[in-house]
Structure formats: structure tokens, C-alpha cells
Simulated scan of single mutants.
Amino acid sequence: MSTVNSTGAAAQQAIFDKLGINTQKSATERASDDKLGQDDFLQLMTAQLQNQDPFAPMENGDFIAQMAQFSTVSGIEEINTNLKALSGEMQQTRIATASTLLGHSVLVPGAIARPDDNGEIHGVFELPQAASASRVSFSDASTGELLHSEDLGPQGTGLAGFSWTNIPTELREGNRKIKVDIAANTGKGMETMGPSIYARVLSASSYGDVSDSPMLDVEDYGTIDAGSVSRIR
């Protein structure tokens, strides 16, 4: 009996060798395995074929179905591996993309502005309906002192832009915080409107899931989602 078993084992090992199946895993390798791999599957398949009932052998369709199922699982594992690698590359790409915003200004809702590198302030405001008159005022954010104002005239529905381009040197060099106030007459007298300001991007960071947008550190406005940025200067 032992001779028969030895002969069968030798024949089985010969088949494994021809198929390139590694059956000589060390104890450490087996302990580290937490799932069946291709070699394990082929060993089980070969043993199943060798020990099947010769009077009721496995149907060709069943055999093909098992092979197809294993191929599907292997394909999914390979896709997962590739997706993880792609995720890492996307993480690096998105922070590189966000870093290109450094030194630029992005449009954020708010009323605090500072002169940009060209010594100018730019922004927009949105009107729910046409205005017969509109005005922008710039004042010192700390003292409330009025620094400059301009009549913008009639404006149509939607976004309207404003700017202050001849800012005095002492304000530009002092990098003072300037408060922006918008007023418009849409039929009910002059009413206050909320402006959006172009503010300088100080830094960019990326963390969390790859689907999350990079975060931008914007001067005077803190951290904002880069995905929420609609305009850049």
C-alpha cells in the first residue's frame, strides 16, 4: 500500500512540476498566506481530477466553470492591485496640480481683501436682478476709515466685477486688510450685497481619500476645498 501511495504521490508531483506549481512552500510562507493563490487552486484541481470517480468523471462544463471562476477572481485581484497603484499616483498628481496655484489668487466669498502682487484688489458680486445703480467702497478693516469708493453704475442680472487698481503706495506696502462693501439698487433703494474677493493662495495640501479634493490655505480665509474654487487669477 505504501508503495502505491508513494507512486501516486510521485506521479502527482510530476504533474505539479510540469504545470510549474510550487508545492514546496516553507512553514513561514504558509503561515503568511491568508488566502488561496493560483498554485493552491491548481493543486486542488489536479488532486480533484486524479481522485475523481472514473465511472462519474467531472463534466467538461463543470471543469471549465471552475477555471473561469478562478480566472475571474484572479482578474479582480489584479484590478485591485492596479487601482491601488493608480490611487497613489493620483495622490501625487493632485497635490502637484494644487501646488501650481501657489502665488495665484482664487475667488472666495468674503469682504476682506489685500492688494495683490500688482498692488490691486479685484472681486465680483452677484445681483439677483438688474440694478439701476451700484457702488463699491473700500475701508480700513481695523479702523473703519473709508479709503476709496467708486460708483459702478447700472448692472445687469448675474455677476458684476469691481476693482481698485490705483491703491496708494502706503496701503500696498503695509499689506493692510481692507474691507469691501457693495451696495446696489434693484428697485428697493441701495441694499448691501455680499462680495467675493480674489485672495492669495499661501499653500496646498492633500490628505484623506484620493477622491477628496486638495485643500488650499488662502490668506485671510483659512483652509478651503480646491474643488470649490470657480475662478483663478
Rank of each mutant, 00 (worst) to 15 (best):
S137E: 13
P154L: 05
D181H: 06
G144L: 05
R200C: 01
L159H: 07
D140L: 06
A131V: 04
T186M: 15
A131Y: 06
G161Y: 09
E170H: 10
F138V: 04
P154S: 11
K177H: 09
D151A: 11
G174Y: 06
A141D: 08
V201D: 07
Q155W: 02
K177N: 15
A160K: 07
Q129E: 14
I167Q: 04
K177W: 04
R172Q: 14
G156L: 13
R200L: 10
K177P: 03
N166R: 11
V180C: 02
D140E: 04
T186F: 03
E191N: 11
E170R: 10
S132V: 13
S196A: 14
T165Q: 08
E173L: 14
S142Q: 13
A199G: 00
R135L: 08
H148V: 07
G144Y: 09
E145P: 08
L159W: 12
R172H: 01
I182N: 01
L159C: 02
G156V: 09
A183D: 11
E170M: 10
Y198I: 07
A199T: 09
F138K: 05
G161E: 12
D181M: 07
W164M: 03
A141V: 12
K177T: 10
N185Q: 01
I178H: 00
L171N: 12
N185G: 02
S134C: 02
V180I: 15
G187C: 08
R200Y: 01
R135M: 08
T192H: 11
K177M: 13
L147K: 08
G187D: 10
A130N: 03
T192M: 05
E170P: 10
L159D: 12
A133F: 03
N185R: 05
P168H: 11
